[in-house]
Amino acid sequence: MGSVRTNRYSIVSSEEDGMKLATMAVANGFGNGKSKVHTRQQCRSRFVKKDGHCNVQFINVGEKGQRYLADIFTTCVDIRWRWMLVIFCLAFVLSWLFFGCVFWLIALLHGDLDTDYKDDDDKSKVSKACVSEVNSFTAAFLFSIETQTTIGYGFRCVTDECPIAVFMVVFQSIVGCIIDAFIIGAVMAKMAKPKKRNETLVFSHNAVIAMRDGKLCLMWRVGNLRKSHLVEAHVRAQLLKSRITSEGEYIPLDQIDINVGFDSGIDRIFLVSPITIVHEIDEDSPLYDLSKQDIDNADFEIVVILEGMVEATAMTTQCRSSYLANEILWGHRYEPVLFEEKHYYKVDYSRFHKTYEVPNTPLCSARDLAEKKYILSNANSFCYENEVALTSKEEEEDSENGVPESTSTDSPPGIDLHNQASVPLEPRPLRRESEIGSRR
């Protein structure tokens, strides 16, 4: 089982795998120059863009038009607004034209077009017409509009002379109601789609790998820009990579689940303020055997998904993003964004995407760390350097704002901070800030 798991979770494809794949392509008759073999020097295209759209195009789909027309309502909801407006206008105009032609044909076959009612006051002739005051196609078209929109100006009306005319008036009224219901329903469904809710759900630009509770963890940050909550919010993550099976089958995008606390339930989050999602790199993680150097040379993509129900409509929305291997910062942490004021908490989104480097973060893999092949620094050293990194950030910001350097908390000259780390230190809580992250 261990060997199978290692093969499945191998992220960085070796040169031997690339040569094996190329040999397979030639042997199977696919070596026509169009096949692409992804190596370390040639990274694959992003499968999920940063804005959440999937970078996929469908080609050679059989009976595409028929399949889309069979699900016309979903098609109308998914198309762009400009095409929705075109369909909206065409549906009414074509129905008016169709029934206008029908009423014109009825008048033509009944002989109503030969009668001039402007110079004739004989009401008996008017009563013999199928539709009064309809003696041309324009008049028939206007009567069709008046019937379907129930305008009723009063000059044109159907008589009991022709039952077919009466039937067409009733039929057009029913068709008009159906068109109204369909168009209004599609427009309302399109307006109520929770897709735009994703514009106020954000992911951090970069993911980070750092120590948390004595273990290497992959972390990324999510935030909600609205005050309205995302009900039943939960997160998922998958690692996408290519691999070759033991039988020699090439899988271009193998999807591997990344555990973010599904078993323990901590994948469900209360997204009021930005939260750091934590994936513990343990023996079940696809990143277990990867060191910093392996991450730098790897070719994979981590897709992160945030799902929840919109509070206003109770409709489920899904926000997506992805991180390539070069977008994962090893040995970094996110800057705090949640600050405790006197009577409330304040979230500073200008710090949302910012990170700071944490010294002495192990550069080895989580496996080597678990097997004690890498000796961690003293816990006080880690905490102290973590505090120094934050303090230096604040000093830089104070210097930019014009604060005198004498007010900063610099260490005395001639003292090495790293050498001082081995000395037991008193706890130094942050002056006014605390970061709330997901705790395992």
Results as ranks from 00 to 15, higher is better:
E371A: 08
N7T: 14
D416T: 09
A233G: 14
T361W: 01
S132H: 04
E232T: 14
K64S: 09
S365G: 02
Q66K: 15
P359H: 05
S411G: 13
K118V: 02
Y384V: 15
F167R: 00
L338E: 08
K118Y: 04
S434C: 06
I275D: 05
H418N: 13
H234P: 01
I302P: 01
I72D: 13
V235G: 03
L85Y: 03
L113S: 09
I328Y: 01
R46N: 01
C383Q: 14
R80Y: 02
K64F: 08
M315T: 11
L324A: 14
Y344R: 15
R367A: 04
G402W: 10
G29P: 08
I179M: 10
T200E: 13
S204W: 00
V102M: 12
T147D: 02
L430G: 12
L21I: 07
R67E: 04
D213C: 13
N32S: 13
V170P: 02
V208A: 04
G176M: 01
N55I: 03
R333G: 15
L85T: 05
T317C: 14
G185R: 02
Q42A: 09
K128S: 10
L425S: 10
L97R: 00
E16S: 05
L239N: 01
E395L: 07
D112E: 02
G223R: 14
G265Y: 07
C157A: 14
I258G: 02
C89T: 07
C319I: 13
I328G: 00
L287V: 01
K342P: 11
G223Y: 05
A27P: 12
E311D: 05
I79S: 08
R156N: 02
A233Y: 10
D416R: 09
K241L: 04
R351V: 14
N28F: 03
K346G: 09
G185K: 02
P274D: 12
E15R: 06
R320P: 02
K373V: 07
P163C: 03
F352C: 00
L417H: 04
G265M: 12
I87W: 15
I164H: 13
V208L: 09
E385H: 03
D416E: 04
D282Y: 02
G261T: 13
D160Q: 06
S246K: 14
R8V: 06
P163I: 10
H343D: 08
S204E: 00
S173E: 02
V131G: 02
S350I: 10
S350V: 04
Y153R: 07
C319N: 12
K215Q: 12
G154P: 00
A314E: 14
R333I: 15
D416M: 06
N206T: 07
Q238M: 11
D112L: 01
R428I: 04
M211S: 11
S95F: 06
N206I: 05
E400W: 08
I295Q: 01
F92R: 07
G31E: 05
N401Y: 06
F270I: 12
I87L: 13
E199K: 10
C130E: 02
S321Q: 15
D112R: 01
A181Y: 15
E311C: 10
K215I: 09
S173P: 03
L363T: 03
S399M: 13
G100N: 00
G33R: 07
K354G: 13
D122I: 01
I79V: 10
D294K: 03
T200G: 09
R46Q: 01
D416G: 08
Q41T: 12
E397I: 09
G308V: 11
H53K: 05
L142E: 03
G308N: 04
K195H: 04
L218K: 00
L430I: 12
H353V: 00
P194H: 03
F103V: 12
L324S: 08
D299M: 07
D416H: 09
L21D: 12
S381N: 09
S264Y: 10
E249D: 07
S204K: 00
Y349W: 05
I302K: 00
T361R: 01
A389M: 13
V272C: 08
T407Y: 10
P286V: 02
H234M: 10
G2I: 06
G152F: 03
D114K: 04
N60C: 05
S291P: 02
S285C: 00
S124L: 15
D116W: 13
L253I: 08
A370W: 05
L338R: 01
T245H: 14
P413K: 10
H353L: 02
C76R: 12
V102G: 05
S381L: 05
S273Q: 13
G65H: 10
M19P: 09
V272H: 08
K354L: 13
L142Y: 01
P424S: 14
F203K: 00
A165Y: 01
D263Y: 03
G65D: 03
K292D: 00
G265I: 13
W330D: 00
G31F: 04
F73I: 08
R44S: 14
W83L: 06
D121W: 14
S45E: 13
C101P: 00
E133F: 03
N224V: 04
N135G: 13
S434L: 11
N386Q: 13
T355M: 04
E307D: 12
H229L: 12
H279D: 00
N386M: 05
K118H: 14
V388H: 15
V37C: 05
E133Q: 14
D116E: 13
K354W: 05
A312I: 09
F339M: 15
I295R: 01
T355P: 02
Y250L: 15
V4I: 12
N419W: 06
N380S: 12
E311K: 08
I59F: 14
S13N: 09
D17G: 07
A379S: 15
S273A: 08
L85A: 06
A325G: 11
F73W: 10
T317V: 14
